[in-house]
Design a protein around this nucleic acid. Sequence first.
DNA 1: TCATGTGAAAACGTTCACAGCA
DNA 2: TGCTGTGAACGTTTTCACATGA
Lengths: 229, 229
Amino acid sequence: VPGERPAGPGKRIPEATVVRLPVYRRILSDLLAEDRQSVHSELLAELARVNASKVRKDLSLLGSFGTRGTGYDVAFLLTQIDRALGADDDWPVVVMGIGNLGTALVNSEGFSTRGFRVLALFDVDPGVVGRQLRGLTVRHIDTLAELTGLGGSAIGVVSTPAAAAQEVTDALVDIGVSAILNFAPHVLSVPPHVLLRHVDLATELQVLSFFQLRRRGETDARRPTTRGS
Amino acid sequence: VPGERPAGPGKRIPEATVVRLPVYRRILSDLLAEDRQSVHSELLAELARVNASKVRKDLSLLGSFGTRGTGYDVAFLLTQIDRALGADDDWPVVVMGIGNLGTALVNSEGFSTRGFRVLALFDVDPGVVGRQLRGLTVRHIDTLAELTGLGGSAIGVVSTPAAAAQEVTDALVDIGVSAILNFAPHVLSVPPHVLLRHVDLATELQVLSFFQLRRRGETDARRPTTRGS
DNA sequence: TCATGTGAAAACGTTCACAGCA
DNA sequence: TGCTGTGAACGTTTTCACATGA
């Protein structure tokens, strides 16, 4: 076999695993704060609310970092997860729309740490432009093109109102961001080379209500529900 | 077969489909706003950035609502998705933590519409308690127990800082909410009868950076990346 | 003729169960 | 002995391909 492994032991890490890694990461960092040395898959599983085989399968995809009979070294595992997630790299982030959501994002723990460097904040509201946030001055969106210093893989965050989202996204693509995280309730259109991820806050509520409805249908299958046809 | 179908044609709707339904919903509602009468799976698929068979499979799980040779009636399909998602029902929502994130959530379109009725807002900050938001007065978290009028299936939203999240969650469980949507960067512990969903804003960035890293590894497998071991 | 709805196949993800190692 | 790492079994989701019907 010819040698070409970007990182880890050459196995393809499925997306399902990737979204669990930050969960393990947080738990490990909490355990580390409590001075815990090692952890085994069963405990990690309980804390992450998944099952133990899943934890072991997930972690084994990053490499063989555990010790049989003992478990995993908390600190070491943490560094390995960070490496797999790219937290050792430097990811420039640009945030578009500094309303309540944008402000919450910029202030959120984990947004400023773990390899993300918030480079610049943009808005259109004259009441917001010029304001200071985490050491950065909010600039007007029209000056986006003046922004330099994005590496080849900058991330744009869209936290504008829905109506502005596509326009702002196009502008981000123009200045060369290679990934966009969208919080507007819209499916954005981007060229194929741009990675796109969409978080719709309302969707999450809808999913919850669906499962409540289903559960209700399971427990009392007879009684008419509130909806009246 | 004995008759027991809560809604739709008695098929179990997989979670993967459920999370796509709100996406279709939004697209349909946009199409409706443009006075479009009908739509076929190919167009819907393009707008949702998925493929056409997936759209057809997803929609067929709700029932046979399309017309062969023509497509789907936009307005009718919209009502059917709403019914499947429980948007015809009334879901009381309580929001804990009215900082930037909580405010953004309450103001967000789709939070106040589609069957969700924001009942009450809670915080601990004296500067926030008493403030008006969307016609509701923010109350102190200590008065949560006084809240009445939750039906059997209220939803609690946790948008407090990380440190308060578990405590606030316990209080929500105590007053009898049956589902919790958590925006704090923690895995919450809840009793088994409570539905739980977790949205971590920072996780989404980490997932994006993972895929950028992977793509980088695919395109130039030789060049050393920025991380220096 | 055109596009839905759906079985069947393929791909993917999870869980099981245990061999292998500290 | 205890716990990891992993093939093999299982379940779910996606995709294919086409019969069916307006």
